[in-house]
């Protein structure tokens, strides 16, 4: 009897270890499937784009189609760079962040302070819906609100508005989540010292959650950095470096689209994408680093 028991137990154990192994292999396989696109993308971009990367690529504006064609015909690299796109992207990001951060952080604080209240729930739901609105629709809205009525033409401001609306829900959410993670006891410690409520928020909660807020903001920025569709309807593009927010402005993703449509310039899409990807990845890494260091 005893012996038989052992046998059964043994065979059960065996089938279990086989199952264990199978699951482990499956998990590894699926992880490989998940990470392979990003690895392949990065390799492809480096392979096809690295030749064009140089100081000129960052400091100069793109050549015209004829110059590019001549260079190609002579077997040379395409001259010039994407300085107008880089400055345009930076300009629109800064303006969008300046608009979205205060509104988003204050809204996030409001949601944190009023859990369960009708207005707070409504705001949270609307913010979630906003996150799902297709970016091209936000571009259209900015076109109506800004291009048609404020700047009377395509402008960096219009682009910034559409990007700011995209960033807003992410900042709202991350602010609320960050504040929620701060122990109530920290808040009570400040209140017990007689600190008025608004000062508790400004001087205790925000500094305590600062890295969380920053992480959310950086992720929000990196998320909208590569947006192209809304910019087509708002910032339009420009062949020169423009720092006037009421004028049409280029952006790196806009340039990629333009290069793609010009057979002579196609060579520039890889290096431009490589640069864009590098910026997005660094922002992600920086925000992860900040989050990890303050855990």
């Amino acid at each position: 009897m005893k012996y038989q028991h052992k046998q059964i137990a043994k065979s059960k154990l065996k089938s279990r270890t086989i199952k264990d192994k199978a699951i482990r292999v499956l998990v590894v396989l699926l992880s490989v499937v998940t990470i392979s696109p990003i690895v392949l993308i990065i390799f492809k971009l480096i392979e096809k784009g690295y030749k064009q990367i140089s100081l000129d690529f960052i400091l100069k504006t793109p050549p015209n189609s004829y110059e590019a064609m001549t260079a190609l015909a002579n077997g040379e690299l395409i001259p010039g760079g994407i300085a107008n796109g880089i400055t345009g992207t930076l300009l629109m990001m800064v303006v969008a962040a300046v608009m979205a951060i205060p509104v988003g952080v204050v809204t996030g604080i409001y949601l944190y302070e009023n859990p369960g209240k009708f207005m707070a729930n409504l705001t949270r739901n609307i913010s979630d819906i906003l996150q799902g609105v297709p970016s091209i629709v936000l571009g259209l809205i900015a076109y109506i609100w800004v291009v048609k009525s404020i700047t009377n033409g395509y402008s960096a401001l219009a682009g910034s508005v559409s990007l700011a609306i995209m960033m807003l829900p992410m900042i709202v959410r991350s602010t609320e989540e960050t504040l929620k993670m701060i122990p109530v006891t920290i808040k009570e410690a400040a209140l017990a010292l007689g600190v008025p409520y608004y000062k508790v928020i400004l001087k205790v909660l925000i500094p305590t959650g600062f890295s969380g807020l920053l992480t959310g903001i950086l992720l929000g920025i990196s998320r909208v950095l590569g947006e192209t569709a809304p910019l087509m309807l708002t910032a339009l593009g420009s062949t020169i470096i423009n720092l006037n927010i009421t004028k049409p402005t280029s952006a790196v993703p806009l340039l990629i689209w333009e290069f793609y449509n010009d057979p002579n310039m196609v060579g520039l899409i890889w290096s431009s994408s490589l640069l864009l990807m590098a910026i997005v990845l660094s922002l992600n890494l920086i925000s992860k680093q900040i989050a990890a260091r303050t855990k």
Binding site: T185, I186, A189, A190, G194, K199, V204, T208
Partner: peptide, 28 residues
């Protein structure tokens, strides 16, 4: 009337020194 809580709750962003005078600092 000062208060001390169940779990120690020093302000995590502040030094020991600043924690002691936090009442003054935070109230300006």
């Amino acid at each position: 009337a000062g208060m001390v809580f169940q779990r120690p709750n020093p302000f995590p962003t502040m030094s020991i020194y600043d924690n002691v005078i936090a009442g003054y600092k935070l109230n300006g």
